[in-house]
Design a protein around this nucleic acid. Structure first.
Length: 403
DNA sequence: AAACATAGCAACCGCCCGGCA
DNA sequence: GTGCCGGGCGGTTGCTATGTT
């Protein structure tokens, strides 16, 4: 049995509000308030509108102190920061922006900010496809070519997240990169209200229980934004796993991020991970290394991976969000990854030498299979305990698994 | 100048959640 | 404890303005 409608759909007006309707609603609410019952409001005023419609009109347009028009750069930054932290929880984001409504922010994000962030990569994508086609015609291994083209990173979507994520190895100038991608120069640290699945206590300034503190959440974000993985042979049906023999290799000469992924087949299903320790650093206590340790057990075959990171472009806020692994300063020991959170960080889109776009190991490792257990847990709304990274290292082989 | 494409935004839809009887 | 109801929210739709061919 369906639920009873909140109003008589046949007798309510839809569509744009007239100035007269606006005036009636505004006048009534200013004099009497909503009375705590939106459904009962329209008949009182003589409006043939659904109560929900009245509420929306009031909240999004008529209520006082609303800001309309362009968003400031600071507002952009706040939105970006919060979106990365908590996703599309527009009401929460709106709460941080006085005078802005969730609808405003949602529209702004969907129509402008997202594009601004993602950049317009259609041209490059087309060029890459042409190049691949040419390679294919010439009998060149497609996957290897792909890696050489984009540094082995991830190309996301048709409009592509890739300007944000893909390492521009050689062919694109810094100036071009800057034109293509955008991340706010200033990512403010904000006090976030308690959220349902936040691990934050009331006295804590930072929101740590991000829904984006693991690779799968990031992956979801990317996919939500239209993402695909560039190494995918079949973009629509391919689900990358460790065992697909993927080869990722990327290298940055300064502020180095070097990632090499390749594996022989069929073993990752048997790999069992367990997290030993995750420690977050608030960046203010003098500790500048977050230590995330995970050990791998039951690895029958060897999977090779190396990774060295020293990129300093992740904003402080993200580092306080369990996104340390987006960042560099990684130090590898025998079976640990120690990821530092540097105190000084250049802008997003730049490394410490100021000449590189973002290319972080997390994304690069998106080719890897997700862990079902972790996914299940995060579908319950929490990933604060999610494993960040796994690495096994021995003299010849090592493996990174980011989940 | 007209046709078509794209972007921006207001408004709607439907689901979920919490309060209350 | 259960079901109803309204509020709140995120996703989507559709109209209008603007840009492009």
């Amino acid at each position: 049995m369906g639920r009873a409608p909140c109003c008589d759909k046949a007798n309510v007006k839809k569509g744009p509000w007239s100035p007269e309707e606006d005036a009636k609603l505004k006048s009534y609410i200013q004099q009497h308030g909503t009375g705590g019952n939106w459904i009962a409001l329209p008949p009182k005023i003589g409006l043939k509108r659904c109560g929900k419609s009245c509420r929306l009109r009031w909240l999004n347009y008529l209520r006082p102190n609303l800001k309309h028009g362009d968003f400031s750069e600071e507002e952009d930054n706040i939105i970006c920061s919060l979106y990365v932290s908590i996703g599309s929880r527009w009401s929460v984001i709106a709460a941080q922006l006085p005078g802005r409504t969730d609808n405003d922010i949602k529209n702004y994000w969907n129509t402008r900010l997202k594009k601004k962030l993602l950049g317009n990569n259609k041209n490059r994508r087309n060029k890459e496809q042409q190049h691949l086609q040419a390679c294919s015609n010439n009998g060149i291994n497609k996957q290897q070519e792909t890696s050489s083209i984009n540094g082995g990173s991830v190309i996301i979507g048709d409009d592509s997240f890739s300007s944000l994520l893909v390492h521009e190895n050689s062919s694109t100038t810094h100036q071009q990169q800057q034109q293509q991608c955008y991340w706010p120069h200033f990512m403010p640290v904000l006090p976030i209200p308690n959220l349902p699945y936040s691990t934050t206590n009331n006295n804590q300034q930072f929101y740590l229980g991000s829904s984006f503190n693991d690779q799968d959440s990031i992956k979801k974000l990317l996919i939500k934004l239209g993402g695909r993985f560039h190494n995918d042979v079949d973009y629509d049906n391919y689900h990358p796993t460790l065992g697909d023999g993927l080869l990722n290799h990327l290298h940055q000469s300064q502020g180095t991020t070097t990632t090499t992924y390749y594996s022989n087949n069929s073993t990752q299903q048997q790999v069992v991970y367990h997290q030993e320790q995750i420690q977050f650093d608030d960046g203010n206590n003098g500790l500048h290394h977050d230590e995330m340790v995970q050990r791998k057990g039951n690895l029958n075959n060897e999977i090779e991976e190396e990774m060295v990171g020293n990129t300093n472009f992740i904003p402080q806020r993200l580092l306080n969000n369990g996104l340390e692994f987006l960042h560099g300063d990684m130090v590898f020991s025998e079976d640990k990854i120690i990821i530092g959170s540097s105190t000084t960080r250049p802008n997003w889109g730049e490394n410490s030498s100021g000449n590189s776009v973002i290319d972080h190991p997390l994304i690069s490792s998106s080719n890897y299979q997700e862990d079902e257990g972790v996914r299940a847990s995060e579908e319950c709304g929490l990933q604060e305990y999610s494993t960040i990274a796994t690495m096994r290292s021995n003299s010849s082989n090592s493996m990174l698994h980011v989940q």
